[in-house]
Each structure stands twice: as structure tokens, then as C-alpha cells.
Design a binder for these strands. Sequence first.
DNA 1: CAGTATCCAGAGCGATACTG
DNA 2: CAGTATCGCTCTGGATACTG
Lengths: 118, 118
Amino acid sequence: MITKKELSLCPVETTVSLISNKWKTLILRELLSGTKRFGELRNGISGVSQKVLTQNLRSMEDDGIIGRKVYAEVPPRVEYFLTDLGNTLRPIIDAMAEWGLGYQAMVNNSNETNVASR
Amino acid sequence: MITKKELSLCPVETTVSLISNKWKTLILRELLSGTKRFGELRNGISGVSQKVLTQNLRSMEDDGIIGRKVYAEVPPRVEYFLTDLGNTLRPIIDAMAEWGLGYQAMVNNSNETNVASR
DNA sequence: CAGTATCCAGAGCGATACTG
DNA sequence: CAGTATCGCTCTGGATACTG
């Protein structure tokens, strides 16, 4: 559910309190391309343990950013997806992706003179 | 300076590796409005300790996001500011601020059933 | 398959004291 | 004022084992 304590903070702090975590951002990146199963998320996010992935998924579910659908099957199948609220975070992730591309390009070019383009 | 290991990661991971931290985002928010002294940052960012603030400032300085200018005065004065690179992060912080505003408004509306009569 | 439960090492942080 | 150094403690997070 949605907690109220964030409301006392500034907008940036509100956002930071929900997605500041490294893994949450990467989970968002994964889910922006569509619904994913638990195993797909674990495989898609390099370096995350099952425990930490589960913890973050639960936290994001509690915050209303992602949804979780459990299929009553054997073997079990659980799908995660962005809620409408989660989808509104897309511009932030897009901005981060775009910046990351620019940064990577800059680092590649900065081997000689990184003050050339100003 | 700029490390190269981030280049092996996807763009989002690159960005996350530099500003995923809660405090770094808030430091950016502070510095987006201009140069700040150490004490101003400490006062402006609620809940951060001197040690953690220093650690994050050093890390961001190493990443080339912020600059640090020491005045040879007594008492000492140290100013922090965004580098050109740091300034390019502005769209991300702006996106987070905008999202935070929308989220706060949404939470307020979702609670109106409870606070209908006031 | 997708978890939960438990244990444990280590990072991270606060508090404190000291320095240029 | 703006740090650095050190000491404990907390609490995250990895590894492992077990379950619906």
C-alpha cells in the first residue's frame, strides 16, 4: 500500500525513497519492456541474489509500482509487471538510459582531450 | 577521475552506478541551484552525517560530477559545484522531481475517501 | 519454479575525538 | 569550518537448506 510519510518530503526525496535503490532501478528497466517471470528477472539482472530480488520486488509491490500475478499451476509461475503508477516512472529510466549513453560516449572520447567540446 | 568499468554495463546500469545512492541524488538536487559550501549541504540535506556526506562528495568528485574549491582562508571555506558533466544530470533530477509531485498528488487523492470530511 | 527461513560475514553508518 | 581517524554496532546481503 501507499505510505504517507513520503508526503512530508520534497518531491525529489519522495522519488528517491521509492527508487533510490540500485536494484529497483534495474527491475524497472526490465519491466519497462513487458511482463517478466521471476526467473527472467533474476537472469536479466546481473549480480542480484534471489533474496535481494524478492525483497525489492515485495517493496515495490507495497509501493504500488509493480504488480504480481500468481498462477495456480505446477510448477508455479509468477509474473511481475508495471502498474499504471510504475509506468509513469518510464521518463526517469529513459532519462537515465540516455544520460548513460552520453556518458559512455564521453568516456570513450576523453582519452586525449576532454575539454575540446565546450 | 573517470573509471572505465562502467562501460561494460548497459546505459541504465552506468547511470545507476553513479547516482543510485540516495544521498548523491539529494546532493545533486542541492547543487543544481548553485554552488554550496560544505555546511550548507549538510544543513540542506536532512539526516545525513558529516562522514557520509564527505564520502559521497569525494565519490562524486572522483566521478567528475562535482567540483571542489578550497579557499586558503581562516576559517577554511570549501565550495562544491556541479561540473559540466554534473549539469547534464539535471534532466534526471527534474524528472524525479516531477514524478514526485505527481505521486504526492496521487496519494492525496487516493486518501480522499478517508479525509472526505474535514 | 518461486519462494521462505536461517545463519553469518562484512559493509555501512553514527558517535566521538582530533587536525589543518 | 571542514575535514580525517577510529571504534563499535547495526543491518544489509550472500549462501544454504527447505517448502508449497
